[in-house]
Amino acid sequence: MYVKCCLVKYWWVLLIGVVVKGCLEDERVALLKLKDALNHPNGSSLSSWQPHGHGDCCTWERVECDNSTKRVTHLFLDYIRPYELQWSLDASSFLPFEDLQYLDLSGNYLAGLI
């Protein structure tokens, strides 16, 4: 009975590992929209955030995910935009990140009501 129980757990973990290979699609899309809103006009910041190629946003710079769920848990978006380029924050941009525990937006010269 114990062996059967452990085998079931092993296959369940293996199945989850196969199904959840990278970050969730809605979070990947939300990150790409954030990149468009945040990015410096010359496109130099967040260069690892690419719509094509390596689509696993858990491997992108400034992003951390939960190892088991692959949901984004930490975003380190500090000092992305230079002083001359103020950014009006749209808080709804962060709604797809249901497991977000840490968000750093410091040094981005946010404009408007925060």
Rank of each mutant, 00 (worst) to 15 (best):
D36G: 12
A111H: 08
H52V: 12
D36H: 13
C65W: 06
P41E: 08
C6F: 11
P51T: 03
G112W: 05
F76Q: 05
S47V: 13
Y79Q: 10
L38I: 12
C5T: 08
L38K: 03
Y83F: 14
K35S: 01
D99F: 06
K33F: 00
W11I: 15
L100E: 11
V72Y: 01
V19S: 06
K35I: 00
L38W: 03
L46E: 01
L85H: 14
S92R: 13
W49F: 08
P41T: 05
L15I: 09
L100T: 11
F94K: 03
A111Q: 15
W12Q: 15
L105V: 07
H52S: 12
W87M: 10
L24M: 10
L89V: 01
P41V: 05
D56G: 00
L113C: 04
D26W: 01
L110S: 04
Q50S: 12
A37I: 03
E27M: 04
D90I: 08
I80M: 02
L100H: 01
G112Y: 09
K70I: 03
S44W: 00
R81N: 02
C23L: 07
A91S: 07
D36M: 10
I80S: 00
G112E: 10
A91R: 06
V3G: 08
D90S: 14
S47W: 09
V13L: 15
G112P: 09
V72A: 02
D90L: 12
L38M: 14
R71V: 02
I114N: 14
V63G: 05
R28G: 06
S88V: 13
H40C: 13
D36F: 10
S44H: 02
H74E: 07
Y2Q: 11
G22E: 04
L89P: 00
W11N: 08
S44G: 05
L75E: 02
N42E: 15
S68W: 09
H40D: 14
K70L: 07
G17K: 04
L113G: 02
L38N: 02
H74T: 09
F76Y: 09
N39F: 00
R62K: 15
L32C: 06
K33S: 06
I80Y: 01
Y109N: 15
L89M: 03
L95W: 04
H52D: 15
V18N: 15
L75W: 04
C65S: 04
Q50W: 00
L95A: 11
C57A: 02
W12H: 13
L100R: 09
I114G: 09
